[in-house]
């Protein structure tokens, strides 16, 4: 990025984090917050659909019959922890510690993979036990809502890997710092969405 180096240095001296040090970085972070707003609305639509169709099981399995409490709880704690480690990555980045930054991002990716593993396992076991998305409107809504989140997480893992690669090659610069920060925002956002899936889908499903 051909932004004058002195501008960056001046900003950092003034206590501005590197990712905000260029106008470009600042604009992109602002733009990404707006993207998260749109994504929130997308999930809002899927949540509404789920809320309206969740009781329409037409004789098929219900949530209470399907959801496995230890399974979705482990999944949830994996993702919660990954959000924490992702926060630590940003923290280390701001201290200028590249090795720790990459290490925490790697831990985040691993936890993300654990999460996806659990989810795939859950989906496959449902599908093989006669609870595929074609069974009822409830299951269509369930697979679409949870699966859309899972697709987001999978994309986030790939994205985070490209960021790790760039950090390894280029170190912490105004550009890579911005990329870490933005992928971090995305990751935390997915954690928030998951908390609601955990609550609205799983906990409500097993609510006694």
């Amino acid at each position: 990025m051909a932004v004058a180096q002195d501008t960056v240095e001046r900003s950092v001296r003034n206590g501005v984090p590197l990712e905000y040090a260029t106008a470009d970085g600042e604009l992109k972070i602002a733009g990404f917050w707006l993207f998260l707003s749109t994504d929130l609305l997308l999930f809002a639509c899927l949540f509404s659909t789920y809320a309206i169709l969740r009781t329409n099981t037409v004789g098929g399995p219900t949530g209470a019959q399907l959801f496995d409490i230890p399974g979705f709880t482990t999944e949830t704690f994996a993702l919660l922890t990954s959000s924490f480690t992702c926060g630590l990555a940003t923290h280390e980045m701001r201290r200028g510690n590249r090795a720790a930054l990459i290490a925490w991002l790697a831990v985040t990716v691993l936890l993300g993979l654990v999460f996806i593993g659990f989810e795939l396992d859950e989906f496959i076991s449902y599908a093989t036990h006669g609870a595929a998305m074609q069974r009822s409107a409830f299951l269509s809504a369930f697979f679409t809502l949870v699966g859309t989140h899972g697709a987001h997480v999978s994309l986030g893992i790939l994205w985070m890997l490209t960021v790790v690669y760039q950090l390894a090659v280029r170190g912490i610069t105004a550009v890579t710092a911005r990329k870490v920060f933005i992928v971090g925002l995305y990751w935390h956002f997915l954690d928030i969405v998951w908390v609601f899936i955990f609550t609205v889908v799983y906990l409500t499903g097993v609510l006694k």
Partner: peptide
């Protein structure tokens, strides 16, 4: 960050407890 993590774990565990 540590405060955040503890809070998120506590909130999640409480919700789980309430539900079951």
């Amino acid at each position: 960050h540590i405060a955040g993590y503890i809070l998120s774990v506590v909130l999640t565990a409480s919700a789980l407890w309430l539900a079951v």
